[in-house]
């Protein structure tokens, strides 16, 4: 049975690597946005260090919104999604697999880029470690919650901006706790509680989002 789901996994991974340009664009956007801030605000290290966590997190959320649509758009448009729904596979598990692939190809490169970004904004090593932890916990959360909205808007032709409109308010708590964790790290304070809250939100999303996504994909087929 699980070999069926590895089939889905391999297919999505193959497709992702055939569309490298589409994967790289959000990352380039991220780097561009982050490098705009020193230019816009001025290069003073102490200011950059202060706004750094917020800037990186806002840019990460925005750039992940750009690439989010890929998750179900092609499968919906060419009809693969309806064949998948008639395959007898458990749709909840299928979307879980698809989200995993999406996270691997979109968030892992972001994590790899994060040292560069934190260097741009003069963050200390402690701050960087905290940033990495929050990204590690936060990006799967973004993928999962984002997938719900992608599922809802996949059948809509003008879905792009709407996706951002739906998702940005939802990501505000994540932004608050993530930046506060990095701020605490900058002050040498413990930031375990912030990480724990993000982890709790992540677990909540793991528990419920596959059902919500499966439902929204079914709605898109109506």
């Amino acid at each position: 049975m699980s070999s069926l789901y590895t089939g889905v996994f391999k297919r999505d991974l193959t497709l992702a690597f055939r569309q490298k340009a589409e994967l790289l664009q959000p990352l380039m956007f991220l780097v561009l946005v982050v490098s705009l801030f020193p230019i816009g605000v001025g290069p003073a290290p102490e200011i950059l260090q202060m706004i750094g966590p917020g800037v990186i997190w806002v840019a990460a959320i925005l750039s992940s919104l750009l690439g989010m649509e890929r998750l179900f758009r092609d499968d919906f448009n060419d009809g693969s999604l309806e064949q998948l729904m008639l395959s007898g596979l458990n749709l909840n598990l299928v979307v879980a697999v698809k989200i995993t692939v999406h996270w691997l190809v979109s968030a892992v490169p972001l994590l790899l880029l994060s040292p560069l970004l934190s260097m741009f904004l003069h963050m200390t090593v402690d701050m960087y470690i905290a940033l990495l932890m929050t990204l590690l916990l936060g990006t799967p959360l973004i993928s999962m919650i984002g997938a719900i909205a992608v599922g809802l808007t996949v059948g809509v032709s003008r879905g792009g901006v709407l996706l951002a409109l739906l998702l940005i308010p939802i990501f505000i708590p994540l932004l608050i706790f993530a930046t506060s964790a990095v701020d605490s790290a900058a002050l040498q304070l413990p930031y375990f509680s912030q990480l724990a809250i993000i982890a709790a939100m992540l677990l909540l999303a793991v528990a419920f989002s596959p059902f919500a996504i499966a439902y929204s994909l079914k709605v898109s087929q109506n």
């Binding site: 809509v156 879905g159 109506n222």
Partner: peptide, 15 residues
Amino acid sequence: VFDDKQQAGKAAGVM
């Protein structure tokens, strides 16, 4: 954004 309002209701309901 949905033309079919029943579908729209379900989608907005999830949101």
